[in-house]
């Protein structure tokens, strides 16, 4: 594996994952599990935390061992690394954080197949140092979490008339929003919103479109 030395400040790596390269709204990765689960704010938050943990541990591991990974088997190695961390986090949480595990257990096991994690290992961690990979992992994990919480908020409010399980509307305005297909609908709307924000930002800054 080749290495590069374009070290960036942590805040830039963090904000990139949350805004300009948000895994859901900008990169459109890991959409199927995301829309399948994000029916409530709490589900979104739990899956977000689980992805954050696995992303950070996997990114740092790949970054540390990047010179020992043969280029032809890098994808199997990434999958193995992600699966190992998913298993470790699953076992540790089940043993020492049973309360949190009761809520998050199902989400953690889902993460092995998340494209966003593999993509960050391929695009970033296998080229950069461990510190940058850590911040990139945190940024991407937070970006995913923010995306999931926002989608969960819209879907829970419109589908169940509730927020964080508390009935706020007293009725279910659009049950359709609970269904997985509506997840894509919400993601589409959010993508349009992000594109619009980017457009406005660039216009104001005088950046050529």
């Amino acid at each position: 594996m080749t290495t590069s030395s374009n070290t960036k400040p942590p805040w830039e790596l963090l904000s990139r994952g949350i805004l300009s390269e948000n895994p859901i709204f900008r990169l459109a990765l890991s959409m199927c599990p995301a829309v399948g689960i994000s029916t409530t704010v709490m589900n979104g938050l739990m899956l977000g935390v689980a992805v954050l943990l696995v992303q950070v541990f996997s990114s740092v591991t790949i970054s540390l061992f990047k010179n020992q990974i043969h280029p032809r088997i890098r994808i199997p190695t990434y999958t193995l690394t992600i699966a190992t961390w998913v298993t470790v986090i699953d076992l540790v949480m089940a043993a020492y954080l049973p309360g949190a595990y009761a809520k998050m257990g199902i989400f953690i096991k889902l993460i092995v197949a998340f494209a966003i994690i593999t993509m960050r290992l391929e695009m970033f961690a296998c080229k950069e140092n461990a510190t940058d990979s850590f911040w990139d992992g945190v940024g991407m994990g937070l970006g995913f979490m923010v995306g999931m919480v926002v989608i969960g908020f819209v879907r829970e409010l419109l589908g169940s008339g509730a927020i964080l399980g508390y009935d706020v509307l007293g009725f279910k305005p659009l049950l359709f929003f609970i269904l997985p297909s509506a997840g894509f609908f919400v993601v589409g709307l959010m993508m349009a919103f992000f594109n619009w924000v980017e457009l406005v930002y660039k216009r104001r800054k005088g950046i050529q479109l």
């Binding site: 020992q68 043969h70 088997i73 199997p76 190992t84 298993t87 470790v88 043993a95």
Partner: peptide
């Protein structure tokens, strides 16, 4: 390299299992 990776993963997961 793949065998070494698998062995390392097995050691990490096995050790975690034993401890937890």
């Amino acid at each position: 390299r793949l065998t070494a990776s698998c062995l390392m993963a097995a050691v990490v997961m096995g050790a975690t299992f034993i401890f937890t």
